[in-house]
Design a protein around this nucleic acid. Structure first.
Length: 862
DNA sequence: GCAAGGTC
């Protein structure tokens, strides 16, 4: 009975385990599959049922364009805004879809335990999609709502199952489609535009995204502030008094003045008086609050500013600590602990720690504090330690992060820091001054987090009305200074404040702008924008500043929130937002010259970049190799760019030329000790795969032995690139008349039947319009070349004399020669580009002497 | 080759 079976799906394996563990009281059996499956029996809605708990691993699907929109050269990015989109498995190797559909078989109830946020709601519907929910299956679908994976919350959620929220899921669908279309359209356009013009951009891709671009915007904004900063001199009056044997500098109420004459006047007034009268003494008890729970953003900020870890690395370390069971889940927005949080147990786990064990023991004996309230984002509890560890167990980096997590947690349950702040105020010559002292009463949490300690400063005793002689009066001259480059930690705060990215993705965006060569991380984890980063942002600022402002993200968020709340239709919102971005895109394209002017001033044109490397097959002039990213060749004459494999060292390959297009071959050596080398033709490498080749091979394969085209589908002997047209060259069919090599049919050239030698690149063009060409065992008595049989199908290519079948030597047969001339008025027997020994027919020796064959030319061009 | 969002 399907109704007696309940399948539950969580967002990740660890949550599935916790849920199963709680609901089965540890009495479950676990089976390995794509993700673990836990089985047990229990009661559901008052009935005895069989439970099965498994999980996905985050999103099952991700959104992309169909194959036809994947080609950058064929698709106009503008069309992407209206293009269809499809969902494909995000990680096909994990086989999550198959796993879910298999496990759901025969199960009449589904309980969704995905995280309780919009993304989780969206994954709910991905799961429903996978298990095949139709009217026939009649499955009952429930949503569990829980705020933490604790026994209390899990049991409460089981008793209060609801329905999944379609609107929230649709809001995520909307965001996915908008992000994809906007990001990909802008990225493709600006990448193609600028890479097609400049040689030293040093970026494989010039990406745009509604999160990464505003993130870069923050860094560049600070750079511009620094760059346009005008330092100003300022002055302040600094009187010194002698009290109880201490020399004390007093702070001026006016702080500083920017007019030296006025400052000098005040200095004189103060000097002339020479007596400081104590006008007021105040003493106030102040408190420095203990921290609230640690969330991801604060963890990343501390990791960057105090430990020197970049966000990417900090997350990696935190994840490892999490999977090893030392800390709780590290991706959370919440700074508030759930009400059920076991503080005593968490502290208890640390009492034997050699570093802070005794402090924790004292807290447990004297009583720990309830943490400050903080904010509960309803996702996961703050990051807390689980098991005690030592530096030896974790290694230095992990230890330092773990140490922080522990000390922070202990800090949250320690007393506040209490101190007394004393302020003495003075009057000298009608001007007011003060000095401040601080005395700590209770160290509280600052004894475990000493870097947050209150600075103690003793102040001598003063009495109100007391008159003290002023020792000297300095006029301090200072200079205003620009802010520093944006620190990573400041950037994280700005991103959080402006809603750019999430706890899980903030580190990814920062890493992105580094990897794209828009910013560089310098000493002290300061983010310094590169010329490329600066030029991009300045470009957006002069065409359409919206493109790099954080509002672009909040606009999208606000629009999809309408969908999430059921206030607007998903389709309408997506169309509306895309329509706006499409207009922005069109305007951007139209105005790109304004941005280009900035690029022109900063970067070198392709023609001035790179080093001469190999010959172009079209103009036979040397092309330049541009080795900065993306690695490519540029032909100055043809104004064409040929992309090369990235990450490899490129050299000329024995001055060989490609038999298909006459481009000089290159050899690419991949880095590393196991790096392989392979040869490639720059033209073939950049050509799309030949269309219609399947039919051609179909015909060739069906023929009897000896037919040209036999052995089709052999791997390329020149390079392993999957789209290289060399891979379409079939196995050898006859001996090369020029060398000891074999002539192979090059079906790519169809309808230009031709043969080329696999060794010397000798090329023979065969009669066009032939229906079928086959080799014969016969040899030509004149030149010993292979005799072939040419079948002109009457229907397709009727010849004047009505004959359809001819035989002849591939090299010297007059019959074929005249036959073709008769039909087309020109000879088709043209050897070309023979290397090494020259042709028997008296063609010039050496390379490049034959007539060029452009693979793009049609037969009629001959 | 491209976005941002989950998680590993």
């Amino acid at each position: 009975m399907a109704s007696n079976k309940v399948l539950m799906v969580a967002e990740k394996p660890s949550i599935a385990f916790s849920i199963a563990n709680v609901l089965s009281s540890g009495q479950m059996s676990t089976r390995k599959a794509s993700t673990d499956v836990h089985e047990f029996e229990g009661t559901f809605h008052g009935f005895h049922v069989q439970f099965k708990v498994t999980s996905v691993i985050g999103h099952v699907f991700s959104l992309d364009f169909p194959e036809t929109y994947q080609n950058w050269t064929v698709t106009d990015p503008l069309d992407l805004f209206q293009a269809p989109v499809r969902k494909a498995e995000a990680n096909p190797k994990a086989h999550i879809r198959r796993h879910l559909s298999q496990e759901a078989r025969g199960f009449g109830n589904l309980v969704l335990w995905l995280d309780c946020d919009r993304e989780g709601e969206n994954i709910c519907f991905e799961v429903i999609d996978c298990i095949g929910h139709t009217n026939e299956t009649k499955r009952k679908i429930y949503r569990a709502r829980f705020s933490s994976v604790t026994e209390k919350d899990i049991l409460k959620a089981m008793d209060n199952l609801v329905e999944p929220n379609k609107d929230e899921a649709l809001a995520v669908d909307a965001r996915q489609e908008i992000d994809l279309k906007v990001g990909v359209a802008f990225t493709r356009f600006q990448t193609s535009f600028f890479q097609g013009k400049y040689g030293n951009l040093d970026a494989r891709v010039i990406s745009y995204g509604p999160c990464q671009t505003p993130t870069l915007g923050f860094c560049v904004q600070r750079y511009l502030q620094i760059n346009t900063f005008k330092p100003e001199k300022f002055w302040s009056v600094r009187p010194y008094i002698l009290q109880s044997g201490y020399e004390l500098q007093l702070d001026w109420e006016r702080n500083k003045l920017f007019d030296v004459d006025v400052a000098v006047m005040f200095q004189k007034l103060v000097m002339e008086d020479g007596i400081a009268e104590v006008t007021e003494i105040s003493e106030k008890q102040e408190s420095k609050g203990r921290p609230s729970g640690l969330n991801t953003v604060n963890l990343l900020k501390i990791a960057s500013s105090a430990l020197g870890f970049g966000p990417q690395m900090a997350m990696q370390v935190a994840e490892r600590l999490y999977t090893q069971g030392f800390v709780s889940y590290p991706r959370t927005e919440s700074t508030a602990y759930p009400s059920s949080f076991d503080f005593r147990g968490t502290l208890g786990a640390q009492v034997n720690n050699p570093v802070w064990g005794s402090y924790v023991q004292r807290l447990l004996t004297d009583g720990y504090q309830k943490p400050r309230s903080g904010t509960d984002a309803g996702d996961h509890p703050p990051v807390t330690p689980l098991r005690s560890a030592t530096e030896d167990m974790l290694g230095n980096d992990a230890w330092r992060l773990y140490e922080y997590v522990c000390k922070h947690f202990i800090g949250t349950v320690s007393p506040d820091c209490k101190y007394v702040r004393t302020k003495a105020e003075f009057s000298i010559g009608g001007e007011f001054f003060h000095c401040v002292g601080q005395r700590v009463l209770v160290k509280g949490f600052t004894s475990i987090m000493p870097w947050l300690a209150v600075n103690e400063k003793n102040l001598p005793q003063f009495t109100k009305g007391e008159k003290i002689e002023v020792g000297r009066v300095d006029l301090h001259e200072g200079m205003t200074s620009p802010p520093e480059y944006l620190s990573e930690s400041e950037l994280i705060s700005l991103m959080e404040k402006n809603g750019i990215g999430t706890d899980a993705s903030i580190s990814v965006h920062i890493n992105n702008i580094c990897e794209r060569n828009y910013v560089q991380v310098q000493a002290g984890r300061k983010l310094v924008p590169t010329a490329l980063g600066i030029t991009l942002i300045r470009g957006y600022q002069c065409i359409d500043p919206d493109l790099c402002l954080p509002d672009i993200r909040s606009f999208i968020e606000q629009q999809i929130t309408l969908v999430a709340k059921g206030q607007a239709d998903h389709f309408c919102v997506v169309q509306h937002v895309l329509q706006q971005f499409r207009q922005k895109y069109s305007y951007f394209v139209k105005q790109i010259e304004n941005m280009d002017a900035l690029f022109e001033a900063q970067f070198s044109p392709l023609a001035d970049s790179g080093r001469v490397l190999s010959k172009c097959g079209k103009c036979l002039r040397y092309m330049k190799h541009i080795s900065t990213q993306p690695s490519r060749l540029y032909c100055n004459t043809c104004e064409e760019v040929y992309y090369l494999p990235q990450n490899g060292t490129i050299k000329l390959y024995k001055e060989l030329t490609c038999p298909l297009d006459n481009f000089e071959l290159l050899i690419c050596s991949m880095p590393g000790p196991d790096g392989k080398s392979f040869s490639l033709c720059p033209y073939c490498y950049n050509s799309p795969p030949f269309e219609g080749i399947d039919t051609l091979f179909g015909a060739a394969k069906s023929g009897s032995s000896g037919k040209l085209g036999k052995g089709a589908g052999m791997p390329c002997f020149l390079c392993p690139h999957p789209t290289c047209r060399h891979s379409l060259i079939s196995q050898g069919v006859c001996a090369c008349p020029e060398c000891s090599g074999t002539l192979v049919l090059d079906p790519v050239s169809a309808p230009k039947w031709r043969l080329c030698c696999n060794m010397c690149n000798f090329l023979v063009l065969l009669p066009q319009g032939a229906h079928q060409i086959s080799t014969t065992p016969e040899r030509c008595p004149e030149c010993d070349s292979t005799i072939i049989e040419v079948d002109f199908n009457k229907k397709t290519t009727p010849l004047e004399d009505g004959a359809t079948l001819y035989t002849g030597c591939i090299l010297c047969d007059e019959l074929l020669h005249s036959l073709v001339e008769m039909k087309y008025g020109k000879s088709f027997f043209r050897g070309s580009r023979g290397r090494g020994r020259g042709s028997r027919r008296g063609r010039g020796r050496g390379r490049g002497t034959g007539k060029m064959v452009d693979p793009k030319m049609s037969f009629r061009d001959f």
